[in-house]
Write a protein that binds this DNA or RNA. Structure first.
Lengths: 102, 102
DNA sequence: AAAGTATATTACTAATAAATCATATACTTT
DNA sequence: AAAGTATATGATTTATTAGTAATATACTTT
């Protein structure tokens, strides 16, 4: 995997609504799968899959404590990327609203 | 489309190796499709598709000049996101190399 | 107006991704 | 050791995506 592909993997780990919800949830610190899946309203298996791929892409940390496995954000840069994406999204939404209102 | 989905669209427009190459190419200013597709080594139709989806997601500007259509980056934040993704990717690659070398 | 050029779009294929349900694994408690 | 709980993984389905080749559209030049 070259460096462009690697960067794309990292970005893909963020570029999905369910995973964005997970990231928002982890903003305030680590959470176990058992807390995450009810909070985002998806199956445990689906949630676990998303967490695995985020972990493998390198954006999450994993900590095992007994039965539970806690995940947390590994790089604060991820939150900054989410913020910037939100800025652009808001800007575009505004533009479209303005067009519509003319 | 809610705001999470919108943010995900913006991120998806960046999270793909071919599109990352296009973004790198546009770093130094606008380019037409006829310049972009040979530079990235893909078909004109494929390149045009990527540009369309990037345009619709809001990360590109389009300027028509006669036959040619010039695309440019609309938000400098995109370059910052690419930079942050590269940082994380490099960090993870380093970690893995270190593990491997032990 | 005809030919040429740049771009977008359609039709298609192959690959990837997201979700669910069922099952396996790993640890804990009784 | 048996039962219970938390998480991960396999199998499957459906949807989405990236790519190619061919065609349509729009503009320019002759």
């Amino acid at each position: 995997m070259n460096s462009l592909e690697y960067s794309a993997e990292v970005l893909k780990a963020i570029a999905q609504p369910t995973r964005l919800r997970i990231i928002e949830l982890l903003r305030d610190g680590e959470h176990c799968v058992c807390e995450i899946f009810p909070a985002i309203g998806h199956e445990q298996s689906n949630t676990s899959r998303h967490l695995q791929m985020m972990l493998k892409s390198g954006i999450l940390n994993q900590r095992k404590d007994g039965l539970k496995i806690y995940y947390s954000l590994r790089h604060p840069e991820v939150l900054e990327m989410v913020r910037l994406a939100g800025l652009i999204a808001a800007h575009e939404a505004e533009q479209r609203a303005a067009l519509f209102a003319r």
